[in-house]
């Protein structure tokens, strides 16, 4: 079984990379973009589905995300 963990910045946290992308997209001539944010995801395949999800939550909280600035969301793939 594979779980996908999405990590994104909380609202109001400045992401210079997203700002640079926004400028580039405007420079490319695209007019319809209102906003852009970016994040990342991790796919983790687990062997034990009973214990696995609890561990995935802990990994997401204790390593993959920083609760001061980021949110995470877990989905089953």
């Amino acid at each position: 079984m594979i779980y996908r963990i999405y990590i994104s910045y909380k609202e109001g946290i400045l992401d210079p990379e997203a700002e640079a992308l926004k400028k580039t997209i405007s420079n490319m001539g695209f007019k319809s973009m209102k906003n852009l944010s970016k994040g990342k995801y991790f796919d983790i395949e687990i062997i034990d589905s009973n214990k696995g999800l609890d561990e995935i939550r802990k990994i997401s909280k204790d390593l993959l995300s920083n609760p001061v600035i980021e949110n995470f969301k877990i989905i089953k793939k």
Binding site: I13, P16, N66, V68
Partner: peptide, 15 residues
């Protein structure tokens, strides 16, 4: 990152 100090260090705002 190990919570011995408050806050975090983001990427510099000027790229």
């Amino acid at each position: 990152e190990c919570n011995l100090l408050k806050g975090t260090l983001l990427k510099n705002n000027n790229q």
